[in-house]
Each structure stands twice: as C-alpha cells, then as structure tokens.
Amino acid sequence: MAITRKDVEYVARLARIQLSEEEKEQFTAQLTRIVEYVAKLKELDTENVEPTAHVLPLRNVMRPDEVRPSIDRDSVLKLAPKAAEGFYKVPQVIE
C-alpha cells in the first residue's frame, strides 16, 4: 500500500514535525517502501493469536501511597528554554 504525500502531511501534523517539501517527497517514497516491506506481516494468520504488549507476565506492580520529596524547582526550571516567576513559559495558548 503506497503512502501518499497527503498521508505524510497528516502524520507530520499529528507528530508536530514541520517538513520541507524535499523531506515530504523523500519520506513519501521511503515510508512507502518500509510499509510495503512491513505488509509481509499480512501473510501470517494471526486470527487466534493474542497480542504481546509486555513480554513478561508481570501484574499489579504498585507502590505504597507515600509522599517523597519533590525536586528543587530551580534545578529543573533552569533547564527550560523560557521560564519566569516559577512558571515554564510557552507562546500564548488560545482556547
């Protein structure tokens, strides 16, 4: 199944990646090839096969409801491209 340029644009938008015209073209071709290769999975009958999300049968891994020290705000806020007055800053969000 061929991936169209429109598919590439839709997916790029979902992933929030801006692509140049050149990249769009390149990805359309490359992803088509990869997806065609991946399509070989369709050869297999998996009608009665359970999917594996976790390779080990671990269940109910939990922690007690205990408060642990939080991290020093300055140590993380100093990593931010933009921050002020204790907040991370981002371009204005319009609802």
């Binding site: 205990e66 408060v67 204790g86």
Partner: peptide, 21 residues
C-alpha cells in the same frame, strides 16, 4: 497523599512547580 505514578504530594495551592519530580 501522593500522585498516581510518583511520590509528589497532591496538596492544593502549592507554589507553582514545587510539587514535581
């Protein structure tokens, strides 16, 4: 007392970005 996936407190009204890890 603590958040769903970490030990930070769930207290309401703390200074911004102080109940984080």
């Amino acid at each position: 007392r603590s958040k769903i996936f970490c030990g930070c407190p769930t207290t309401f009204g703390a200074e911004p970005n102080t109940s984080v890890c």
